[in-house]
Write a protein that binds this DNA or RNA. Sequence first.
DNA 1: TTGAAAGCGCTAACAT
DNA 2: ATGTTAGCGCTTTCAA
Lengths: 327, 327
Amino acid sequence: MRISDVARHAGVSPSTVSYVLSGKRSISETTRRRVKESIDALGYQPHAGARSLASRRSNVIALVIPLRGDVHVPVAMRFAVSVVTAARAHDHDVLLLTQGEGPDGLRRVSGSAMVDGVIVMDVEADDARVPVLRELDLPSVLIGVPEDTEGLTCVDLDFAAAGAACVHHLADLGHTDLAFVGQPPSVYERRTGFAERTTTGFERAAAERGVRATLHPCSPDTAHGLAEDLLRERPGLTGLIVHNEPSVGPLLESFAEHGRTPPELSVVAIGPVPPGAPPLTSVDLPAEEVGARAVGLLMDKIDGPGNPGVTLLEPRLTSRESTAPRA
Amino acid sequence: MRISDVARHAGVSPSTVSYVLSGKRSISETTRRRVKESIDALGYQPHAGARSLASRRSNVIALVIPLRGDVHVPVAMRFAVSVVTAARAHDHDVLLLTQGEGPDGLRRVSGSAMVDGVIVMDVEADDARVPVLRELDLPSVLIGVPEDTEGLTCVDLDFAAAGAACVHHLADLGHTDLAFVGQPPSVYERRTGFAERTTTGFERAAAERGVRATLHPCSPDTAHGLAEDLLRERPGLTGLIVHNEPSVGPLLESFAEHGRTPPELSVVAIGPVPPGAPPLTSVDLPAEEVGARAVGLLMDKIDGPGNPGVTLLEPRLTSRESTAPRA
DNA sequence: TTGAAAGCGCTAACAT
DNA sequence: ATGTTAGCGCTTTCAA
């Protein structure tokens, strides 16, 4: 089943069928209908390889997903799914690359013309893939923001603003003694953009508002110990900002064991609130929107010059039952 | 940069370069080396579209991932990553399809010759994609087992054996009153194979050993209530089997509030044990092995007749501190 | 508004 | 052991 079969069935030339499919030149309404009917009748589907050979377009984009232990998997998956959905809306498929393949994976899919562009997740401040992207002249969009963004297209939540929004929310409620519970230490050590920017925003806003504020990296298995430490060393603490979804549960339980529960201890989460947890005041991570934006920007780069630059989505803090004015 | 450039550089014909690359006919050692040097010197990479057009092989497989709320995402991700890794070892890339595309997605990637085969995850007993796979004559492997496996290739953990192994382990320790905490109700309602088979194995083994045994679907937000119910209604309960990773934590805490802690209350988990949790006796879900097997079987089907049938991997129960002889 | 035909870059059958 | 060459199925230029 190929394009010439459709052409014969519709009584037109192969090129006409091609143009009906691509819309790249005007076709009379009658011809178009006839061709479409033949396509449906025969169940024709163009051969992707032939198409990419002739048009130099594969209609596939690559998505590089993280597979580090310290990356919160459900969030990564939400990004991935939203990228696939958005890509399909632009008539593209998604090829999955793992972090493990690293720069070589990018070279491979680019050099073999398998993909028209690439979206890279979980970008670090000094990311080894960034120089490769610059060298490859492969359209790309980063989810996350490296240190040097020269010539790159990046999308992310404005994590600095998110960190600041939490401080302002708590400060507005009268809280003056805050702790920020962050990502696992390894995340900061490799200088992952989003984590760094959040703490920066937190610290800056805390300084601005003149509140006491401290930073505490945390992983789920150290959450309990951290809570104990804070209870002991920070008796005046009334505001907690948690940028670490899997630790929210353990942390709240540990505080609860000592009678410290929301909203007396006011808690703000950055990121999706786990189902089944008490409804927390939170800054949500709009993964769907970030994914869709990344795909949109990538399509612009594939089709034309694109809009290089950093797009930071405004965070939105949703006030729920876990925060209240200071007693 | 194309194959003829390499051929000229190496002083051979294009077909020789092709054969060096594919290994499909014998090449003298000297020629092979010369060609390889040229390939390296020029940084040649074959055009994937041209290759798939000429060879009728795309060297890409599709992976259909679930995106239901009730599927445990980190486990799904482990499968996905292991599939990508194994596929790369067989010189294939992986195209990501979401459940949302359903049967049409399969038809599309098959009809356009984008992929050589497909791996479908999270298969239900009566899965809408199974008839499509039968009709498409696209090589496929299912991770999971539907009701009618006629003509299909399936891989999975032997969940029935896993359920049974937990019963035998506890019965061997003298426990006679067991509860099985399962997946969210929706998972059973759509008759997901692995969930059903686990409970079947559990019930069969319990009957065999003559122990009291009950089934309890559960989601993270109902875990606490379920624990309360069990404490009230099952005072003699000393053995708990949990086939629901995200509920393990909440469940154990609820029991602990009433002084019931492992190993007095002996607990066996089916699935990966969350990091930071106490070391539980468990039957691990060998996602890496399942993924690698699925890819291996798919490659066999792509290259030849394959081995249709159901491959069930033997579960291995690892005894840890959460189980002990009945007091 | 449509058709004819020249490639796109590779593989594999055929030839030597 | 290697070379020649006819496609693979599509897009797009050129022509009408």
